[in-house]
Structure formats: structure tokens, C-alpha cells
């Protein structure tokens, strides 16, 4: 899943990715108008919960309300990291960063092992997430392969040199606030 915005000219910016287990629209509980679009970037299975039911659970269990609040705070931390990616990192670092982030997030959900991720995401979607042309995304992926950081096979990404990918992406998993991230 991705949250997306369209510019007046019709250019798409993907503003964040969501992996299985995430609650993309948690802010919708308290903000009645949706200010972005959520769209599936791959095949996805979605679960829906009524806001009033969520509110009732939160009213009854403060600890659940805290966990959900924490989740939206981490979403905000991810946005801050993406702003930095878009504004100040070059394409090579930005791409490495986004791959590191997806791998850590999928790994912390127990969905992948050994830094091998199934990411059936198009080069165009990566371009829209990084604010780059598709041709440049294609080039940067080629560079990451050439430098021995990743191996790709169709939609399968294998971070063969995790340490180097982390360095290239200027990636520090602290902003994801996940306990398991440290053990990677």
C-alpha cells in the first residue's frame, strides 16, 4: 500500500509505503477528511474497522490507545525520513535507504529472512516515491547491482551486502523504533 498525492499537473508523489500489519489510515480516526489517497501498489489484502468501534476499544483500554498513538508517531518519523530522502539525499542513497527501510519493516513483521524481500513494486512506483524519473531509478538500481549491494530477480530483492547497503543509504533504523531492528 502507498499513500499518494497528485500535483495540479497530475504528477504522482508516493508519500509512504505500508507493509502487511500496518494501519495506514489511523489518523482518519480523528481527522474526518482524508487529505491523501491510499492505493495498493501490489496485490493486497485489506481489513477494515469502523472508527466508532476503534474509538470504543481505545476508550476501554488506554494501553491500546497508546499503542495506536505510538504507531501514528512512527508514521510521522517515517515521513521525516522521507522528506530528508527527497530533499537532501542523492538518488543512489535515497534508493538504498528506501530498500533498507522496506527490508527492516518486512523483517520486523517476520515476513522475510536473510534480507531477501519480495517487492513486486514497479520502477515507476519507486520513481514516484523518490521524486525521480523512471529512467534514473532504473539506472540507480543498475548501479546498486553493479556495486554488489543487491541482486534482483524479477520482483525479488536480495540485499547481499547489508552493511554496505546501510552505509550507502545513510540508513539508521532508529526512526522506525522497532526492537528487532537492532538485531539485524
Amino acid at each position: 500500500m502507498g499513500s499518494t498525492k497528485l500535483t495540479g499537473e497530475g504528477k504522482r508523489q508516493i508519500t509512504s509505503f505500508f507493509v502487511p500489519g500496518d494501519i495506514p489510515d489511523l489518523h482518519g480516526m480523528h481527522l474526518s477528511v482524508l487529505d491523501c489517497t491510499f492505493s495498493s501498489l501490489t496485490r493486497a489484502t485489506l481489513g477494515f474497522m469502523r472508527h466508532d468501534a476503534m474509538q470504543a476499544v481505545c476508550d476501554q483500554h488506554a494501553s491500546i490507545a497508546t499503542v495506536l498513538w505510538r504507531s501514528t508517531l512512527i508514521d510521522a518519523a517515517i515521513y521525516r525520513e522521507w522528506v530528508t530522502n527527497l530533499g537532501r539525499r542523492d538518488a543512489y542513497a535515497g534508493m538504498a535507504h528506501i530498500l533498507c527501510e522496506l527490508i527492516v519493516r518486512l523483517q520486523s513483521m517476520g515476513l522475510i529472512e536473510d534480507h531477501v524481500a519480495e517487492l513486486p513494486i514497479t520502477q515507476t512506483a519507486l520513481a514516484d516515491a523518490l521524486g525521480l524519473s523512471t529512467v534514473h531509478v532504473n539506472r540507480v538500481l543498475q548501479e546498486l547491482r553493479r556495486d554488489g549491494l543487491i541482486i534482483t530477480d524479477g520482483s525479488r530483492f536480495h540485499a547481499v551486502d547489508w552493511g554496505e547497503l546501510v552505509r550507502a543509504g545513510d540508513f539508521d533504523a532508529t526512526y522506525l523504533h522497532q526492537r528487532t531492528a537492532k538485531t539485524l
Binding site: 538518488a91 543512489y92 525521480l132 524519473s133 529512467v135 534514473h136 532504473n138 539506472r139
Partner: peptide, 13 residues
């Protein structure tokens, strides 16, 4: 069109 956009990005980088 894609190539042209790619060249602009390549130039910037």
C-alpha cells in the same frame, strides 16, 4: 520523454 527526464536527473546527479 522518459529518456529526457532521465537525462535531467542524470545531469543533476
Amino acid at each position: 520523454r522518459e529518456a529526457m527526464q532521465g537525462l535531467i536527473d542524470l545531469t543533476r546527479e
